[in-house]
Simulated assay, not measured.
Amino acid sequence: MANSLFLFSLFLFMAVSLAAGTQFRVGGTGTWAIPDSNAMSYNQWAEKNRFQVGDSISFMYLPDKDSVLLVDADAYNSCNTSSHIDEFNDGNTVFTFARSGAFHFISGIKDNCDKNEKLVVVVMVDRSNSSSLAPAAPPTSSSSSPPPPPSEGATGEPTPTPNAASSKVVGVISTFGAILGALSYVF
């Protein structure tokens, strides 16, 4: 009986850990600041990663010196800090992507934004939905403001690419089957 309880607990832990999204650190380090002239820009970093619904991104900064603003594409392009969807100023912001599409982040200090402290994250379309016509969920945040509009120049959904979601499902099913097999052997 103790073996079966252990195996069940192991399965539950694995299922929960497989279902959780990935937490990315902005720029790879998590530090939200004006990029060094020799460093990769935040957008170059973002282009090298695959963001999915359920993933999150963390921003670390001095709360009395900076902030993070979620903005639309126009405010992003003009570094308009007065027109934001949401504002974060706690010094350790974690933002979870609740829908696919483009998310625009800028520094709450216009001069910092003008010096390239800004980021666009494109979250991949969730291909597990049976209907692509379902409305997108708003971004997860503490504000009740509407989600940002799609970025200009978008030509539709990205081409299908393999992602970790299908391997997570296979992993969960395989783990479940292995545990059931082990339990049937114990009893």
Rank of each mutant, 00 (worst) to 15 (best):
residue 3 N to W: 14
residue 4 S to L: 10
residue 7 L to E: 05
residue 8 F to H: 12
residue 10 L to K: 12
residue 14 M to A: 12
residue 17 S to V: 08
residue 18 L to W: 07
residue 22 T to F: 13
residue 23 Q to V: 05
residue 24 F to R: 09
residue 27 G to K: 01
residue 29 T to Q: 11
residue 31 T to Y: 14
residue 31 T to P: 04
residue 36 D to L: 12
residue 38 N to S: 14
residue 39 A to F: 01
residue 40 M to K: 10
residue 40 M to V: 03
residue 43 N to L: 04
residue 44 Q to G: 10
residue 45 W to G: 02
residue 47 E to H: 12
residue 47 E to Q: 15
residue 48 K to W: 01
residue 48 K to V: 03
residue 49 N to T: 04
residue 52 Q to R: 14
residue 52 Q to L: 15
residue 53 V to F: 04
residue 54 G to E: 03
residue 55 D to H: 09
residue 57 I to L: 13
residue 60 M to K: 15
residue 60 M to D: 15
residue 61 Y to C: 05
residue 64 D to Y: 13
residue 65 K to L: 15
residue 65 K to F: 15
residue 67 S to W: 08
residue 71 V to W: 06
residue 72 D to N: 15
residue 72 D to A: 05
residue 76 Y to H: 09
residue 77 N to K: 13
residue 77 N to E: 09
residue 78 S to H: 09
residue 78 S to I: 00
residue 78 S to N: 12
residue 81 T to F: 07
residue 81 T to G: 07
residue 83 S to P: 00
residue 84 H to S: 13
residue 87 E to K: 15
residue 89 N to E: 02
residue 90 D to M: 00
residue 90 D to Q: 06
residue 92 N to D: 10
residue 100 S to R: 12
residue 101 G to W: 08
residue 104 H to Y: 12
residue 107 S to I: 01
residue 109 I to L: 13
residue 111 D to L: 11
residue 112 N to L: 00
residue 113 C to L: 02
residue 113 C to H: 05
residue 116 N to S: 07
residue 118 K to Q: 04
residue 119 L to V: 01
residue 129 N to F: 15
residue 129 N to Q: 14
residue 129 N to C: 08
residue 130 S to P: 00
residue 133 L to E: 12
residue 133 L to Y: 10
residue 136 A to H: 08
residue 139 P to Q: 06
residue 141 S to P: 06
residue 142 S to P: 09
residue 142 S to K: 14
residue 151 S to D: 10
residue 153 G to E: 02
residue 153 G to F: 04
residue 155 T to K: 15
residue 156 G to I: 04
residue 157 E to D: 10
residue 163 N to Q: 10
residue 163 N to I: 00
residue 165 A to M: 12
residue 166 S to P: 00
residue 168 K to C: 03
residue 177 G to S: 13
residue 179 I to Y: 00
residue 182 A to W: 05
residue 182 A to D: 01
residue 183 L to T: 06
